[in-house]
Design a protein around this nucleic acid. Structure first.
Lengths: 235, 235
DNA sequence: GTCCCTTTGTGAAGCGATGCACAAAGTGAA
DNA sequence: TTCACTTTGTGCATCGCTTCACAAAGGGAC
């Protein structure tokens, strides 16, 4: 059996590094398309929007894949990062909830590009069950467990209304799924060993609003409009 | 002029805390609807999916709004967090790019709920300009600057193809916008003082795939399928 | 082979966030 | 008033990530 270089920490890549690897991969793919053979940490870092020291440390966690004085071989690095991220196999993804957002996700091309294949769509509304979206038949949520098992789905995207999300999560987890991407604005409770990632548009906007408010406050010279909590309310 | 309590760090809330405030706010709104008057840090923390020490430290950055032995007044805390996040005013948001995703965002209800109002939709495709989506007329991208200024848009959501995103960002920034939520899979370069937040479905999936691969590797007892880099490729 | 130049990989310091553990502060009962 | 109990606010140790700065390693010219 062939092992990876011993100085690469066997199974210990920092979470922050993992979150940046897809960024590097995308930048490298662009360079590959433009025909670049090698790239320096400086150039790759700036294409990915990080500084070069961070990039080098990140890559050093995968192994020693660069050449001093030269840089990194673009194709080789693409292969190594892809392998580390698990993109050399392909993953069957199911989308639950085919409302506006679910439809948009199903049709989103960037999805399929790298290792991911939308393998099933589910909804509870009899009105949309049976529709064809992005070449797929929308299945009824009653068949969730059976279809997940049959098609080997390992990642589920939740695009249901908030009220349904926890219940659906429980069911897909019971069916063996351990990776969930949640678009519903609720905090999901899941057993240990299940990975959840959350995307919440409303939260992102609120964070932007906080900084935006700060910027405008600063312009107008302080919190002149601060108001007291209305006296009428009982404290 | 009324000031906030002096022990609250005047303009110094940690970024990690800001990112969690919307979570607390959502949990509090649920409690308010269920008629709860007060809540302990323990209960609120568990509703928001964090531990109670973190919650208390986060809230302490806003001021001392709890009562020892009792907990926090739900309505009062909602008010304080809303004010800190800048949700007591409402923000005009523009969505650029009315493809699948842009449409879904325009129709997304959770948007409007708290302080945000979709004030304009833009697209470059003459085919969709003039369409009515979620009660709004889709405007041509040529009118971007004029409409942004006229309607006081301060936050822009980018849902354009990747190739157009940087160019659109440059234009909205030139028009005075300093907060952007970017759904396009590109690294945007922006001047200092402009806040960008990024949402990238593909990256989220890749992170999940990494962990999923790890879990299955562990089950099958090691990286038995690891392959050498094909010899044919020049290194 | 030797020298110079470039670029990687990493030790170490710095920085911010997390979580523990407890003193301080409040409630309610007697 | 005093006492027992609850819950906040925070000092402090710890942890993980970032950044600096440089030794080590490789390439190319001569």
């Amino acid at each position: 059996m062939i092992r990876r270089p011993s100085h690469a920490r066997e199974r210990g890549i920092p979470e922050a590094t993992v979150a940046r690897l897809p960024l590097y991969l995308r930048a490298l793919n662009g360079m590959s398309e433009r025909g670049l053979a090698t790239v320096s940490s400086e150039d790759l870092a700036s294409a990915a929007g990080v500084n070069s020291a961070k990039l080098r440390k990140d890559l050093s966690h995968l192994g020693s894949y660069g050449t001093r004085g030269v840089g990194y071989d673009v194709e080789y690095l693409i292969y190594q990062i892809s392998r580390e991220l698990g993109l050399t196999q392909d993953w069957a993804v199911a989308i639950v909830g085919v409302g506006n957002l679910g439809r948009a996700l199903a049709n989103y091309g960037g999805f399929v590009s790298r290792g991911f294949r939308v393998a099933a769509l589910f909804d509870a509304d009899p009105e949309v069950v049976g529709d064809h979206i992005a070449g797929l038949n929308v299945e009824h949520i009653d068949d969730l467990e059976a279809v997940i098992r049959r098609r080997g789905v390992s990642i589920v995207v939740l695009a249901t209304p908030a009220a349904a999300a926890q219940q659906v999560a429980d069911r897909v987890i019971a069916a063996g799924v351990t990776s969930i991407l949640n678009f519903a604005p609720v905090v999901l409770t899941v057993p240990e060993g299940v990975d959840i990632r959350k995307v919440d548009l409303s939260i992102e906007l609120q964070i932007l609003a906080f900084h935006e408010q700060r910027k405008t406050d600063r312009m107008s010279g302080g919190p002149a409009m601060a108001e007291e909590w209305p006296e009428a309310v009982d404290l």
